[in-house]
Design a protein around this nucleic acid. Structure first.
Lengths: 114, 114
DNA sequence: ATAATACTGAAGTTCAGGCTTTAGTATTCC
DNA sequence: GGAATACTAAAGCCTGAACTTCAGTATTAT
């Protein structure tokens, strides 16, 4: 039955980044990959809880994991970050072109043009 | 009593962007400023609910509003977007330098290059 | 002045999501 | 083999946050 054939959505990404613990995990993994236990150690919560956060991050394309033997290693997945960045950039383009049009409008009605 | 003297935090911004309705609001406002009512119209929820979302967006620095007469006009505030973008960029720099160091390591142990 | 509009505040309801605990499974060590 | 390690799945608890409704204020229109 192959659920979740499609990749992560923008909603997945921003929902994942909305939680401070998950952002902290992303920050740590931005520096180096880590095992589940090492990753969980500094947090004031159970290993299981951190595991759940990692699952959310994985589904959102922000983290990639691989299990070797009995340890699972987690590392950053650029895909999720790219999705987030693209969304922000797209919005920025929109309101910047709005400002440009405003500037054009002000510009052509200024001075002795025409 | 002047609460909230300090500006919006990263947590405010990403929490705000974590909700799909609020992202939809940001998308609309990226195109043009709108009154509360106009903004709320297309959403399948009460005006009050949209108003609450706008408050969250305002506290997070993603939206700016101004009340003139009895209508409140909402528009994008670049500050929040900038905060989000900065956070993403900072993480990206981290793991990219990690990759660079890896590349350097591989490079210096390869071929005769120096 | 009265009515209509455009919000705004407050209180209550509901539910998703973050956490815990417990009980597993798979792997490595001795 | 048995004991320790490293997760993982499942169940339940609990809080925060999203939404509603309703009542209230300020502004504009007639």
């Amino acid at each position: 039955m192959q659920a979740r054939a499609t990749g992560p959505t923008i909603d997945d990404v921003f929902h994942a980044l909305g939680d401070p613990t998950r952002r902290a995990i992303v920050e740590r993994l931005s520096q180096r990959p880590e095992s589940m236990s090492d990753l969980a150690a500094p947090f004031d919560m159970s290993l299981a809880a951190v595991g759940q956060h990692v699952q959310v991050l994985e589904r959102s394309g922000l983290v990639r994991t691989e299990k070797i033997g009995r340890t699972r290693t987690c590392e950053i997945n650029p895909l999720g970050m790219a999705l987030a960045r693209q969304w922000l950039e797209a919005r920025r383009r929109l309101w910047e072109t709005r400002f440009d049009r405003l500037a054009d409008f002000l510009g052509e009605n200024e001075d002795g043009a025409d």
